[in-house]
Design a protein around this nucleic acid. Structure first.
Lengths: 148, 148
DNA sequence: TTGCCTGCAAATCCTTTGCACTTTT
DNA sequence: AAAAGTGCAAAGGATTTGCAGGCAA
């Protein structure tokens, strides 16, 4: 059920095949996302990309990410914090976000196969398992709450 | 598993008990949220509250909602659209948000009891079932995608 | 009276957009 | 050369904040 890992080359080919153009900026974004298992904010992405392409502009990053999302290469989530985070679609996982401390854990997307099937059958809703973000309390914050 | 319904009076008492003050603005916000099963944006809430308290300011609404959330009376979700939506915690349900058309369906929170238990056991994560928002495709948009 | 609450306006943060210029194809 | 991509700056929307005055306790 897990999508196969996507190489930087796969990304480049997908861009070209879709009729879009391959630029240094896109190569750099693909590179960063591929070499980072984390979920990055646009700001973090900009800083990272500038180590490769120093003159890249933030709005260009936004536009590249928009294109990558349309191509299904990238997904983003709102993890409670204000800014959205992005990562490659191949690294398919859900986020568990702690309401208190903001920490996040990742859960394999396959864990949502069952509920995805239920939602499809009962609500005709096709869950995007690349894009699940669940709120709650992490173990640590849970303890602190209970001590009160 | 469903939280008991919260009356406007319960809300007022919770505010007072917590040491916060009860104001007309808070009463109005409690009233609107209680009488609306929908999930409201701050803007919608402002318009609704102004029918009761014409001079209320938007930033006051934000501050009231912040307080209500801290007290556990209210929860908000980011339903993909830009603005967050708020509703009473007692009206416990998850949102299914269509990525294409933005439509939302509600699902009883109890549907997430099983996965909540799994997440707790395997990841020590306490899911907040009041705050689940899942992305995907609604039946209608699903059809359109397949026709392509 | 005390100090929490509010209105107002300005600030901030994240994201989008218009336009002229530069690349990719 | 044509079209897509980019930098820059400005606009946009959502949310937060500082401060002076107003109101609940």
């Amino acid at each position: 059920m897990q999508a196969p890992p996507i190489s930087v080359n796969d990304i480049i080919c997908t861009i070209r095949d879709s009729g879009h153009r391959v630029t240094n900026g896109k190569r750099a974004v693909a590179d960063i996302l591929h070499n980072s298992s984390a979920h990055l904010t646009v700001e973090e992405l900009v800083l990272a990309v500038r180590k490769i392409e120093p003159d890249i502009n933030q709005s260009t990053i936004y536009r590249i990410l928009e294109e990558f999302e349309e191509l299904g290469l990238v997904v983003h989530s709102h993890l409670g914090a204000s800014a959205a985070v992005y990562h490659l679609a191949g690294q398919s996982h859900a986020h568990l976000v702690c309401d208190r401390c903001g920490s996040t854990q990742e859960v394999p997307a396959s864990r949502f196969d069952l509920i995805a099937r239920e939602l499809l059958e009962e609500f005709s809703f096709t869950l995007d398992r690349h894009h699940v973000a669940l709120s709650g309390l992490c173990a640590h914050c849970r303890e602190n709450v209970e001590k009160k």
